[in-house]
Amino acid sequence: MEPTLLGRIGYAFLSLFVITNYGLLLIGSMARISAKVQGRVGQPVYQPYIDIIKSSVKRNAISHGIMFYLGPVFRLAGGVGTYMFIPAVFGSVVFRNFSDSGDLLLVMYFIFFGQLGMALGAGEGGHPYSAIGVSRGLAQMTAFEVPFALSVIAVAIQYGTLDINAIVGAQQGGFLNWTLFTNPLAVVAAIIAFLGMSMHNPFSVVIAPQEIPIGPPTEYQANLLGMLQTNRAIFNGAKLVLYMNLFFGGATNILVMVVKTFLIYFINVFVGQAFPRFRTDQSIRFFLGVPTLIGIASVIIAAV
């Protein structure tokens, strides 16, 4: 039964609520896993909640102009937008979001949109490290977009569509239908790009605390920071769901989604704990090197 528009909006909010909480818990649990590697106990899983509450109940806040406000808003819009046009659970009424209204290109646009908005806002902060962080972020994004775009192209070619629902649908019926197995090169390229996208080591050049503490969000505080933290959860969730949909056969129920996204996210942590950080130029060179070649190869394979 097709719900009304109002109903869909309601479902979308529910879905957004779930992914926000999931994203927060995911961040919390990954922090605990990282802590384990570091030989310690780590923060409570629910710590991100407290942090956001804390940030939101700050008594005063400082502004650096209207764009400064809009930065986190754009970013949040980017995060929510990304998520809204991806089906979180294939075939679910509640979690399909507005995936039928947009396609892969729209989603990719939203991914960019958040970053750009952030760039505008952070630049307004007046802090040199914000500016450097933004430029680093944009430079690196441009670089990892290449393998990512290539792998998306490969996927699009492979499935002959940009509709995410269709792509997921095509992967149903056994894990061998997953893109992971049907076009492994594309997945490798995309996963490497994903490392860059998630800002984990060795690609954490944007907030690099020892270099440019802490990059774009340097001047953000109070509720604006709370907004950024919330977005981090949503955006992470959205990206993970997207990857799951594109490369890992999507999910037919929420449990599968949780397991798959958790594992995809874990790749970040797994690599991140082992390596230090690239310099920006190294990072760019890296993305434009092997991953791009893999991406091209995947496109060729898909095309051929």
Partner: peptide, 16 residues
């Protein structure tokens, strides 16, 4: 070799 860090995840934490 760097992935050897994960060895520590299966050992007792240093934390008091």
């Amino acid at each position: 070799a760097p992935f050897a860090v994960w060895k520590r995840a299966f050992e007792k934490p240093f934390t008091v």
